[in-house]
Simulated assay, not measured.
Amino acid sequence: MNEIVDEMNYNEFKSIITTELFDKMDKMIEERKLSMKNAILLLKHAGYCRVIKNIWLSGFQESSLNRSFEKMIVEEEQKKEEKNEKLMIDLCECYISLRSGFPPELLSICVPCLLKIALKKEENEEIQKEVEIALMALRNVSDYHYVEQELYLNKITEIIQYHQEHRNLTRVAYQSAWQFLMNKFYWDKSLEEVIANELHFTREAARELEELMKCVDWKKNEDKLKEMEEKNLLERWLETVNIYFGKCQLRNEERAVLIESIVQVYRVAKDNHREICEECIRLLKTVSYNTTVEIEDLLKSGAVNIALGEIVRFDFMKTSVEDWIFGGYVLIQYVEDYFVHC
């Protein structure tokens, strides 16, 4: 069944992984026709695929299986002795990766549980996969969901810093760790200093973008590239970088390197992969509106040239100004200011 889930495209996944399926599984577990062990194996894999393929799914949280899992998680947490730690981890991974919204009381249980797994530092393949699954589930805790800082900050900081020193995480796991932390940035501006100066996000993101650019086969056409893991991971990094430039107002010399990396992604993708180009355009628009970005960085990186090029190719009949000009007017204003004052 896991192999079938792997091969599903977006529409197939949404049409098959439904409330009715989860309700049926719940009934089968209750009637002992399906073991909890086998159910968890399937659900963990479905949740992992759902998150990595970025599929919006509401079927689980509307199901009786969701209510059963919530009850088991709370009951297991309330046990004073003989807690089944393995069951708790499995329940939390399934629950977090399959839902799109979370009650605060369940998040306060599941987030520390999954971070505890993600803190494992052994570098064998089995442990790396456990860590990856836990962090992939955590990245599903979006910016809509508030989590108390004391429940996550020290642990996620340790996970990221340890990887920066030892490179123990998979690429997917590392991006997921950053996405989880960046999602919390929406709620907590005090994270700005940690993200920018303690964890050096801009340096790390630039390095990841540059490495992923080398892994993607840019000669493939857009359709063949769509399912490629490295391409999807590169797009997720661009989304994470967009949050950073949209929220972080600290001046940082490392930003220039990151802006140059975004421009490089645009240039290697521009001939065949308009979807990635558009993501870069939207991101550079966010960069242009960030008041702490230096004019020199926009000029040296080539961002202004991209803006002018997009304005030249702009089709007023087919495309929205918002998508194509990425703040081109703002960039032109920056250039004018630069020459006036220099």
Rank of each mutant, 00 (worst) to 15 (best):
M1W: 08
N2K: 10
D6E: 15
E7C: 10
Y10N: 12
K14E: 10
E20D: 15
F22W: 06
D23F: 06
K24I: 00
I29T: 00
K33T: 07
M36G: 09
M36D: 05
S64F: 06
R67K: 14
M72G: 02
V74D: 06
K79C: 07
E81Y: 08
E82Y: 10
K83L: 04
K83E: 09
N84T: 05
N84R: 07
L87M: 12
L87C: 07
I89S: 06
R99I: 00
S100I: 00
F102D: 02
C110A: 15
C113F: 03
L114Y: 02
E122H: 10
E123N: 14
L138Q: 05
S142C: 08
Y144H: 10
Y144E: 13
E148S: 11
E148I: 03
L153P: 00
I156C: 01
E158L: 08
Q164T: 04
H166T: 09
T170Y: 01
A173W: 00
S176Y: 04
A177H: 08
Q179S: 10
Q179D: 11
F180D: 01
F180H: 06
K184L: 02
W187T: 07
E192F: 06
E193M: 13
F201Y: 15
L212Y: 10
C215T: 11
W218D: 02
K219P: 00
E229A: 14
E235L: 11
W237M: 06
E239C: 09
N242D: 13
C248N: 15
Q249I: 07
R251I: 03
E253L: 09
E253N: 13
E254D: 15
I259W: 01
S261G: 08
Q264I: 00
D271K: 15
D271A: 14
H273E: 09
H273G: 05
H273A: 02
E275S: 14
E278A: 10
C280F: 05
I281G: 02
T286C: 06
T286F: 03
T286D: 12
V287N: 01
V287F: 01
V287H: 04
D297A: 08
S301T: 02
N305C: 07
N305S: 12
I306L: 13
L308F: 14
V321E: 13
E322F: 15
W324G: 12
W324T: 11
G327V: 04
E336L: 12
F339M: 11
C342V: 09
